[in-house]
Computed example of a mutant assay.
Amino acid sequence: MFNIGCHLSMSKGYEAMGKAAVKIGANTFQFFTRNPRGKKAKNIDPEDVKALLKIMKENNFSAILAHAPYTLNACSADEGIRNLAIELIEDDLKRMEYLPNNFYNFHPGSHVKQGVDIGTRYIINMLNNVLKPEQNTIVLLETMSGKGTEIGKTFEELKNILDGVELSNKMGVCLDTCHVYDAGYDIVNDLDGVLKEFDDIIGLDKLRAIHLNDSKNPFASHKDRHETIGEGSIGLAAITKIINHPELRHLPFFLETPNDLSGHEKEIKILREAFKY
């Protein structure tokens, strides 16, 4: 089974996202839990959620992925911003219980010149505050490109966070192909080597999802500019190897490329044709 989807808007609700995914040939999708540039969230309609779960079951969906807002920064130098991060993630994880056994992804954050060690401690503190033994959601740290003072540009930085989390069974990693390539991991020419490094440092059992994006920028540029599949510096040949790799092919893949729904539909068709069933 090839599990592929894209980012969908939650503006019309949960059922609408499920229908949109099916229409474009997807069997999973990603969505923002709330305003991606703010903190406002829609009220949850249990009947709307129930309709989505029905669509997912009928169409053999894999796990879906909720994405935290970009404004969330758990390692900010500002205590108020750090407390807001705790508040938002705690609320998001309560909301995710309406959609059990799925994923919640967030960017580790920017330490804003405090240093990686201090920022890492803040992120660990936040996770140890919000994670609960009874929750059904796995929280994913996203690999980052390394622009500015981002934390998560190396596998070691992600491992340091994971090692400090008490409920480690509630944690995983989402690998973004654009981000790791821009960060200096050569998934084009040495995919096996990159995955071995990931396994040696973090463990491939922690890799739970992939953001499948081409990159507008060259290798090791430390930028974060996604490109349509096959039109960037990673290229379709390398992306085809990624989706067919024996250590990755079972994972859900989420497109975050600069496309509308019709564009994502074309990308999904290309990728399904490239996948070796």
Results as ranks from 00 to 15, higher is better:
149 T>D: 12
191 L>P: 11
42 K>N: 11
34 R>V: 12
210 I>F: 08
60 N>A: 08
207 L>G: 09
80 G>S: 08
75 C>F: 07
148 G>F: 10
221 S>N: 12
216 K>C: 14
259 N>V: 11
247 E>K: 15
211 H>T: 10
49 V>P: 14
178 C>A: 10
235 G>C: 10
48 D>R: 04
55 I>E: 01
201 I>Q: 02
33 T>L: 04
269 K>D: 11
192 D>V: 04
156 E>T: 15
178 C>W: 11
32 F>H: 08
257 T>G: 01
99 L>Y: 14
136 N>L: 13
265 E>Y: 09
124 I>Q: 07
191 L>V: 05
212 L>Y: 06
253 F>C: 01
16 A>G: 03
201 I>L: 09
180 V>K: 02
201 I>C: 04
263 G>N: 03
104 Y>I: 05
260 D>L: 10
78 D>M: 04
255 L>R: 01
268 I>Y: 07
276 K>C: 03
271 L>Y: 07
59 N>H: 15
219 F>C: 07
94 K>Q: 11
127 L>T: 00
163 D>V: 04
194 V>K: 03
245 H>G: 14
58 E>V: 00
106 F>M: 07
116 V>P: 00
173 V>W: 09
69 P>V: 11
61 F>R: 03
39 K>W: 15
265 E>D: 14
142 E>P: 01
124 I>D: 11
109 G>N: 03
40 K>H: 10
212 L>F: 10
31 F>V: 00
266 K>Y: 12
149 T>I: 09
36 P>M: 13
14 Y>W: 15
113 K>H: 12
214 D>V: 13
240 T>H: 13
